[in-house]
Simulated scan of single mutants.
Amino acid sequence: MSSDRIGDLLVHVWPAAKADAPVVLAAHGITANGLAWGRVAHLLDGRVTLVAPDLRGRAGSRDAPGPYGIARHADDLIALLGALEIDRAVLAGHSMGAFVAAVAAARYPERVSEAVLVDGGLTFGLPPDADVDTVLAAVLGPAIERLSMTFPDRDAYRRFWQGHPAFAGEWTPEVEAYIQHDLVGDGPYRSSCVAEAVRTDGGQVLVDPGTLGAIHALTVPAVLLYAERGMLDDPQPLYNAERVAGLAVPAVAVPDTNHYSILIGEKGAQVVADHILAAAEAAG
């Protein structure tokens, strides 16, 4: 894996074993970074080239200027394809990144062969007057709380995440790299996430019509993979059979996963990798 700056963004690339292998471009969640795709990349095992940027306002791209927003991230993904001289790619996205992938695929279908949406991309159905800060705090819990916290050392940050119920039993070298990549400072440390970026992006995921309508406007093949448990490993998931009923995009439940382990855990990452490989193979 290599990490290089391309334009405003720090971009992580897990190269394929063959130069002509398909390319997959992956977008991370609202307070995450590109290394969240590390376990999936490991399981892809060089059969595709996986490209995962730190989105604007996070980790290695925290100094990238605004404005923020889902459409801006979508445009960044397509610009990244251009910079890498890639005509078409499979797009994958987790959580907020699934909304980014859906918007990019809806706006630029000629650049996208298929979209793999992981526990995100479908509206939560909130009213337009919903208070963004209150909803984000309630839904994201510790993930959003940490943005105002400081940590004396890297071990303290590791312990913080190991205490998160959704991460229990899912600690791997890839998870370690992902959470440590979030830190800035030299002690005390803090999360790299820019608060304005998180709030802007979160508000659009909650109520922006263009963001929420993208999954229904797709003209490229797509699939929605959803976890059976929630963000705190609780029994209330973001999606269930009732919520996805009637959705034109095929929806597949991923057993024994929560919102995080569907991407970082062994079982979830394997299902995501399998769907990415199927999409890449179908694209030729």
Rank of each mutant, 00 (worst) to 15 (best):
I6N: 10
G7Q: 08
V11S: 12
V11H: 10
A16D: 12
K18E: 15
L25Q: 11
N33L: 06
L35V: 00
L35P: 01
W37E: 10
A41Y: 03
A41N: 12
H42C: 09
L43F: 10
A52M: 05
L55R: 15
R58F: 07
S61R: 07
G66S: 10
P67I: 05
A89E: 13
A98H: 03
R107T: 14
Y108I: 05
E110R: 03
S113M: 07
V118F: 11
D129W: 05
A137T: 15
V139W: 10
A143Q: 11
T150R: 12
T172C: 04
P173L: 12
Y178L: 01
I179N: 03
L183M: 05
R190K: 02
C193Y: 01
A197W: 06
T200A: 14
T200H: 12
D208C: 05
G210V: 09
V220A: 05
P221W: 12
A222Y: 02
A222K: 02
E228R: 06
M231D: 02
P235H: 08
Y239F: 15
A248T: 11
A248V: 03
V249W: 04
A253G: 12
S261H: 04
V271Y: 05
V271D: 07
V272R: 00
A273E: 09
L277W: 06
A280E: 13
E281N: 12
G284T: 09
G284M: 05
